[in-house]
Amino acid sequence: MEQGTVKWFNAEKGFGFIERENGDDVFVHFSAIQGDGFKSLDEGQAVTFDVEEGQRGPQAANVQKA
């Protein structure tokens, strides 16, 4: 798993971006967030995640709040 920081996340649209430790950004969809209840992330929040190849390039999977 990688570690990163939430760059931004739009809860209304259900997606955002995580900044990886290497400085690259990776797309995150709310469906990739682990846990119960409303799935959202806060700007600046530390997270761990896997990276999978999506239809439009790399995207975060198995996102967990650190």
Rank of each mutant, 00 (worst) to 15 (best):
49 F>W: 02
9 F>G: 01
2 E>H: 15
20 R>H: 06
24 D>K: 15
60 A>F: 01
49 F>G: 00
45 Q>T: 10
42 D>H: 15
50 D>W: 13
10 N>W: 12
15 F>Q: 03
18 I>D: 00
61 A>K: 13
32 A>H: 06
21 E>F: 12
9 F>A: 02
34 Q>S: 11
56 R>A: 09
60 A>Q: 00
63 V>P: 01
33 I>W: 04
25 D>R: 09
7 K>W: 03
66 A>P: 08
60 A>E: 00
14 G>F: 02
7 K>N: 03
66 A>T: 12
59 Q>Y: 15
56 R>G: 09
38 F>D: 08
35 G>T: 10
32 A>C: 06
34 Q>L: 13
46 A>H: 15
31 S>Q: 07
1 M>F: 11
45 Q>G: 06
11 A>D: 07
54 G>N: 08
42 D>A: 13
3 Q>H: 14
3 Q>R: 15
18 I>T: 01
49 F>P: 00
16 G>L: 01
13 K>A: 08
42 D>G: 10
26 V>T: 04
54 G>P: 03
13 K>I: 08
63 V>D: 01
34 Q>N: 10
60 A>W: 01
27 F>Q: 02
28 V>G: 01
57 G>C: 04
46 A>E: 10
37 G>W: 06
66 A>R: 14
29 H>F: 10
61 A>V: 14
42 D>W: 14
40 S>W: 13
58 P>D: 05
55 Q>Y: 15
28 V>P: 00
44 G>R: 07
28 V>L: 08
14 G>R: 04
9 F>C: 02
2 E>A: 09
29 H>R: 04
2 E>S: 11
63 V>K: 00
16 G>F: 01
31 S>H: 08
27 F>I: 03
27 F>Y: 07
20 R>N: 06
55 Q>F: 14
25 D>Y: 11
30 F>S: 05
57 G>N: 05
43 E>I: 15
12 E>Y: 14
57 G>T: 04
65 K>R: 11
32 A>Q: 08
39 K>H: 07
42 D>P: 08
45 Q>L: 07
36 D>I: 11
57 G>D: 02
66 A>H: 13
38 F>W: 15
34 Q>A: 12
34 Q>D: 08
53 E>G: 07
63 V>E: 00
8 W>N: 03
21 E>Y: 12
53 E>R: 11
52 E>Y: 14
13 K>D: 04
51 V>W: 06
33 I>L: 07
20 R>Q: 07
25 D>T: 12
64 Q>R: 13
27 F>L: 04
36 D>S: 14
55 Q>E: 11
41 L>H: 02
34 Q>I: 13
62 N>P: 01
33 I>N: 02
63 V>M: 02
37 G>T: 07
6 V>A: 03
17 F>N: 02
63 V>T: 03
61 A>F: 13
44 G>W: 05
46 A>F: 12
45 Q>V: 09
23 G>R: 10
30 F>K: 07
6 V>C: 07
26 V>S: 02
31 S>R: 11
13 K>P: 02
58 P>A: 08
40 S>N: 08
30 F>R: 09
10 N>D: 09
22 N>T: 12
66 A>W: 12
17 F>G: 02
8 W>H: 04
12 E>K: 15
62 N>Q: 05
41 L>C: 03
58 P>G: 05
55 Q>P: 15
25 D>P: 08
38 F>S: 07
26 V>D: 00
21 E>Q: 13
66 A>M: 14
17 F>E: 03
10 N>K: 10
11 A>C: 10
35 G>A: 10
21 E>C: 12
66 A>S: 13
43 E>Q: 15
28 V>K: 00
14 G>S: 03
23 G>L: 11
57 G>Y: 05
44 G>M: 05
58 P>S: 09
15 F>C: 05
65 K>G: 08
37 G>Q: 06
52 E>C: 09
35 G>V: 10
14 G>H: 03
39 K>N: 06
65 K>N: 09
45 Q>A: 09
16 G>A: 02
27 F>R: 03
52 E>H: 11
2 E>D: 09
47 V>C: 05
